[in-house]
Design a protein around this nucleic acid. Structure first.
Lengths: 180, 180
DNA sequence: AACTTCCTACCGTCCAGACGGTATAGTAAC
DNA sequence: GTTACTATACCGTCTGGACGGTAGGAAGTT
């Protein structure tokens, strides 16, 4: 049900993510949906809580990534097809809409990323710059909406180039911390 | 009226930006609003058109900025109090919601920024990185919502530091193109 | 083994209010 | 007489939510 809620939010926006629509997509009736989540607010809280759990897992994956946390962060920022990215974008829709308190879960993810990048990069300004680029990529992914990989592939001009640039910056600012 | 529409979109999300609410905020009646914009779609189109006009002016200001286009772009990305930023964020709300075609106006602004930065930076990857950081800052501004400067001032840790880092990158990648 | 009772996980219906939009009568300025 | 509204009333549709019902299994009693 949370999956259906998140998918509708990302694909068609907050307005389309009504109880009826979520219930339909999840394959239950509206009554059934409201049985599990007593209200729409509870649904929102449930998704925010789910994001918190996924964030913990994502940070672990980031630390364990063979190419290092920065590579992992930037590469996953262009995807919309994994559960974490879907839920992250969904919650950011909610935070921009009628549920500003959902922002806390978003900030949690953000702080965790920054802290993890900082472990490897040492320089706080550079860490912030990297996370900002990740945010920028997320913002684009958020606008892509339903289109599968249409302009993600055509106008992205290479995440690899971007990562190469970031490596140069790391080498410049913190020569001793590269390679995870 | 477009101003009121944009303000409601940014402060309270797409759902709150109803015809009634826009009319109230603009100090007119609903009939009066619908006299000028025959439908809500027309209102949306009007705002997108307005963004296109503001984009042209913004790019001019960017080129004429004493500290250079990059400095201008990054600094204005943290603001929500100017008309351009307000309308840009408002249209991005619409594009993420029920009006995906509003994305065209957003892409227009984005392309114009990238082109202008490219004029000064020469390296396309670096230009993209800079615009991505700008996008990231916009994404944060979009989440700040109504709060005046609350955490913009507390957790921003200096746009100046970020700009210094960008200058280093420019010096590294295109040594001959700094200072506007 | 048969029965009643209770709980869980739903379904389907209904409701008050809000939504976008239309219509109409009136008004004040130019 | 046209323009630029205001104010009010209304329509059909959609919204979140409340409500009563029910299929099916587990638990207890006899």
């Amino acid at each position: 049900m949370l999956q259906a809620f998140a998918a509708l939010l990302v694909e068609h926006g907050e307005r389309a993510a009504t109880l009826d629509a979520v219930a339909d997509r999840a394959g239950v009736s509206k009554g059934g949906l409201l049985y599990h989540f007593g209200s729409k607010d509870a649904l929102v809280d449930g998704l925010a809580e789910h994001l918190r759990a996924l964030t913990a897992a994502d940070v672990d994956a980031m630390r364990a990534a063979p190419a290092g946390p920065v590579d992992y962060l930037i590469r996953t920022s262009t995807q919309v097809d994994t559960e974490f990215e879907l839920v992250y974008l969904a919650v950011s829709r909610l935070a921009q809409g009628a549920y500003p308190h959902a922002r806390a879960a978003l900030d949690g993810a953000h702080d965790a990323w920054t802290a993890t990048v900082l472990e490897v990069v040492a320089d706080p300004v550079l860490a912030r710059a990297i996370v900002l680029m990740s945010d920028g990529l997320y913002a684009h992914a958020a606008l892509s909406g339903e289109r599968p990989g249409d302009d993600l592939t055509s106008r992205r001009m290479g995440v690899d180039d971007l990562l190469a640039l970031i490596d140069e910056m790391i080498a410049l600012r913190a020569p001793r911390a590269t390679e995870g």
